[in-house]
Write a protein that binds this DNA or RNA. Structure first.
Lengths: 259, 259
DNA sequence: AAGCGTCGGTTCAAATAGTGAACCAATTCG
DNA sequence: CGAATTGGTTCACTATTTGAACCGACGCTT
């Protein structure tokens, strides 16, 4: 594997940590030598991708990604156009809403609007969503070229709860349903006690570039309510697609590479 | 130089481009071999740091930095706390306001609030600010340990306009003035016809972590007005420092490494 | 339509960079 | 107090990166 790949993998590992960690910890986590890990961290730090706390000597994500993200947002204002819609959706549904973007073969959460209610689902920004176990993942695959779904189903599928669908035929059926319905539903696929529904944000040519999802506590949704939420999420996703590609956007095409 | 450094340098080069470019262009710009450039781009793409347009084959910043930036913002909400203050400042001053963050030895623009006026200064988000030629740079250095300023002054200083101060003694005088006054002033240092004033956002221990600046067309400011704007910018910078470190923030320390 | 330049992308021997076991010195813990 | 961490460094060994030369395709000009 290339050195660059290893270093960026290291950065990815750091991004998944819930708190700051030290050199030895990070080395163990990435199964890299301590010396190698250190060289990577130093190099990443030189470029602002990680920062080292001067006191604790622990490492965290640096400020350079913020700069890069702002540049991307300036040309491709996905977040800034989507957030108002998400806010409205959270208010209308009174449930937690989140937006994911597809990149590098993964679907990552990039924004969360919390439910105004006291009892609600929390979702981490920056987390990577498994395709088979989340409404977002299913919504994304259902509207992508069939090859992508098959590629994802071919890998071993982790069961996060005892409700997680892990058999390809079951998932294929879910995808077919989703494609017909216009939105996906996941019942406790990733987290026990949580039901989600999601719909794709699509480029003009139809390929999804991300998803918008609603996640609600199981106790608040019945068969009728989930369809209601699904309608709302599909509506919002359509709105974002239109807002984004409707005016002025050069509609960039994305090569849909393997994960 | 390490391969990682070269690859991240390439990413940095792409970030500075005003529009998307092709492989050969980028290779030329970075003085790297085409084959090497391609391997880097492919690797960066695999991890989502760049995207290649499927049609034009040109490269642009990818979505992964957005994910990383959101993670950082969730733990270290510099932007989200600063933006409301910047908005108020833009409204109060009726001039363009921008926020910069120090990282990897550079001061980068991470947010801009445009002046409500028709005739106003525009500032690019993501751009890197030269320390000696901008109000932000001077404000940052004036409140940093003296060693950092001397390090920056030691390098050859580019004259962006015929008003740019490039001699170390002149700049040292400016820094002394700035430290005393509490805010910096730059008259056409980077752009002809633009006057700026800036103040540092500081961690509890006093070291600056960024700056907030106002940039106004020369024709709208006289000696009195610039001091007025300076007062406002200093006030706003103080507000951001307080908002950020006042409550709950763990006040992380940053190792102040060379540029 | 032939000629030329440039594009994105690929190949493989030569050269350069990355690697990691062993080693510090400084903390932390029982 | 000593055992087991921690972050960090060294240097002989070796695997990875490098780039000139190559390809087919596209878009000009003649």
């Amino acid at each position: 594997m290339s050195t660059i790949g290893k270093a960026l993998g290291l950065l990815d590992a750091i991004s998944r940590l819930d708190r700051e960690h030290g050199l030895s910890d990070i080395a163990r986590l990435c199964a890299l030598d301590k010396a190698t890990t250190r060289r990577f961290l130093v190099e990443l730090e030189r470029h602002g991708f990680v920062e080292q706390d001067a006191e604790t000597r622990k490492y965290r994500i640096g400020a350079e990604p913020v700069r890069l993200a702002r540049i991307r947002e300036a040309r491709f204002p996905f977040l800034s156009l989507a957030v108002p819609v998400l806010r409205d959706l959270a208010a209308a549904s009174t449930e937690t809403v989140h937006l994911a973007e597809y990149s590098a073969g993964r679907l990552s959460n990039i924004h969360v609007e919390m439910s105004p209610r006291a009892h609600c689902v929390t979702v981490d920004v920056g987390s990577v969503l498994p395709f088979h176990a989340t409404a977002s993942g299913l919504a994304f695959l259902a509207f992508s070229p069939a090859g992508l779904a098959e590629q994802m189903l071919a890998e071993p599928l982790q069961a996060f709860t005892r409700y997680t669908l892990t058999r390809a035929p079951d998932l294929r059926a879910m995808l077919a349903e989703t494609a017909e319905r216009g939105f996906s539903i996941s019942r406790q696929g990733l987290e026990a006690g949580v039901v989600s529904t999601a719909a794709p944000v699509r480029a003009p040519d139809g390929t999804p570039i991300g998803t918008v999802a609603i996640a609600a506590p199981l106790v608040r949704v019945n068969a009728v309510r989930i369809l209601e939420l699904g309608q709302q999420v599909a509506e919002a996703a359509g709105q974002i697609s239109d807002a984004f590609f409707g005016l002025g956007q050069p509609a960039p095409t994305l090569s849909r590479k393997a994960g």
